[in-house]
Amino acid sequence: MKIDLHNYESYLIEYVEGNLDKDESGTLMEWVARNPEKQVELEVYEKTRFIPDETIAMDGWEHMIKPGTGQTFLKLNRYVWILNSLLVATIIGYLFLGGKSVEQPSLLASAVTSEPAERSLTSTMLNPVVAKGKESLKKPSLTEPAKQANHLLASAAPGKVVADPAPVHLTQKLSIIQPEKLNARAIRQPEIIGQPGEVEVEVVVKRDKKLRIKRQNKRVSYKVKKRHESRPTLGPMQQMMVMDLIYKQPKPFDEFYRFLKDYDPWFQSMTRHELKRFLKGNRLYEELPVKLKKKDRPKDNYQKAGQEPKIPAIGEIRQQEPATRRADAPEPSQH
């Protein structure tokens, strides 16, 4: 071990780290004694050791302690006790309430007549009770509707969950766990079409990196979008009136709708959709005049500016006349 000015630092660190044995430490100390300017450096190195601050403690670490085996044992004992009491209660109930089928005298007699112990024990065994018509007591299984709902959600296009044409009859809440089939957009903006108010789908979304869903077990409840309620269509008399009026009073659709509502109280409850559907069904919608768009309407500068119409004077018209005249127009005579 040769210590010089080029390698002394690594020896100092090894010394501080405690990696040098007794002889090596002695050699180093001798070298440091011969080079007193390195003594300070050694002291600084010794101060680079960190001493744990015991005063720093994590508050609430006790909450991480799990209940030990003692409590589990107690819990187990409690369950065993409950089971035992239930068993005893069942036996007593059977003997005293439903025990008509069991012939107690014969049981006692068999016990008195010193039958074998095994036989007397087997005679105390309860016969299985078979309930009649228990199938009717079963609740309807949720598996099939759940499958249906899963199918619907799985077959949905991104951003839109559309039900099958056939209405889905789900009367209870469902838990659908299939995060891989749904994309984030579909979860945020679902659109489930079905029977109004009957379906409530509850989607349990688990953590999924692909979908960038960070929250675990996020529950999102959806109600089926309320479908437009079917209203009574226009009656035959109303239809006749509409067909008559459409030729007598041709108007753009909006105006015609308002006109009908004012025309007769029969049309008070009629919706725009209903009228449009009727007109389109009878190919009358195309007969209505089209309302001109704003840009196609004749310009009305007076209304636009909110000013009074300026009536030009006769002299002004005469002055403007040459400018407005067409180029191919014959020139006025000089006479």
Binding site: P52, I56, A57, M58, W61
Partner: peptide, 10 residues
């Protein structure tokens, strides 16, 4: 937990 929670915390 008793032995190492505070150590890891520090």
């Amino acid at each position: 937990v008793r032995m190492y929670s505070n150590r890891v915390y520090r």
